[in-house]
């Protein structure tokens, strides 16, 4: 693993972002518009359902942030596939792990900037996030790890199975969020699917976000559960990615997809 290779890929991605400014719109536009819509909704509900408005606002912010992390990490890989330039990168002696770490690091830069903007917007609309900043940030870390894990898994699937599976970049998190019960307790889900919510990386995170919105204290055990669940996904995603790459090298999919 060489830091200079990772930095080279990051330099390249940031340069492409600078030259390809519609992508910047893509990164900023959706999360910020989402935050503004639900911020206004929270303002509207302040008089008759203050907590409900804030629950929707804060849960949506964590959802948007997670979506941003997962999709941007996938888009950075996908653009190399769409431009047929992945082969050139991989034959320059950059390993698949250096490549992926660079993509995640570049995503982190964007996610940090947008995450800060979302925090400020939420504050403007009265969400009590700064009052519990350490909880807010720990839950954001859980969202970051869980969504990056999904980004890694989707990248692995696309590399092993082909470009046809790129639709997962747009759809995977939605399914995970559905099972993670973002605006309501997981108990409301039908019992036969409730076990799925127990193994989702975001279930404890959204539960913590709801408590944060209603002004209640978030138990450290819940924060720990959110971090452990998303951390476990993040750790397990790496061997899965390695396995996908190995499989793609054997099946010929890597040569096909990279060219």
């Amino acid at each position: 693993m060489r830091a200079r290779n990772i930095l080279a890929v990051m330099w390249n991605d940031l340069k492409i972002l600078r030259r390809n400014q519609y992508r910047l719109i893509d990164i900023l536009y959706f999360p910020i518009i989402t935050a503004l819509i639900w911020g206004l909704y929270a303002t509207y509900t302040k008089t008759f359902a203050l907590e409900a408005g804030l629950v929707v606002l804060i849960s949506n912010l964590y959802w948007s942030y997670s979506l941003l992390c997962q999709q941007q990490s996938n888009y950075l890989v996908m653009e190399d596939l769409w431009s047929n330039s992945l082969r050139q990168v991989l034959v320059a002696g950059i390993t698949e792990f250096e490549y992926l770490i660079a993509k995640l690091a570049t995503t982190t830069i964007g996610a940090t900037a947008v995450g800060t903007a979302l925090l400020l917007i939420a504050q403007h609309f009265g969400a009590p996030l700064f009052a519990n900043l350490h909880v807010t940030l720990l839950l954001a870390l859980a969202a970051f790890l869980g969504s990056m894990a999904l980004g890694i898994i989707v990248t692995g699937i696309v590399i092993a199975a082909g470009k046809e599976y790129q639709f997962l970049a747009w759809s995977t998190l939605e399914l995970f969020v559905f099972f993670s019960a973002p605006f309501y307790p997981a108990d409301l889900l039908p019992s036969f699917i409730r076990w799925i919510s127990d193994v989702m990386p975001f279930t404890s995170l959204f539960e913590g976000a709801r408590l944060l919105a209603t002004g209640g204290s978030v138990p450290p055990a819940l924060i720990g559960a959110a971090l452990i669940a998303s951390g476990a996904y993040f750790i397990l995603a790496w061997p899965f990615y390695a396995w996908c790459f190995k499989r793609a090298r054997r099946s010929g999919q890597l040569a096909r997809i990279a060219t």
Partner: peptide, 23 residues
């Protein structure tokens, strides 16, 4: 490779800078 491709938004100078870093 024939039909060699790089990212559409990159300039040749970007491409060469990136690969000179990679190499």
């Amino acid at each position: 490779a024939g039909g060699s491709s790089f990212h559409w938004a990159q300039t040749p100078k970007d491409i060469l800078t990136f690969f000179s870093k990679a190499y």
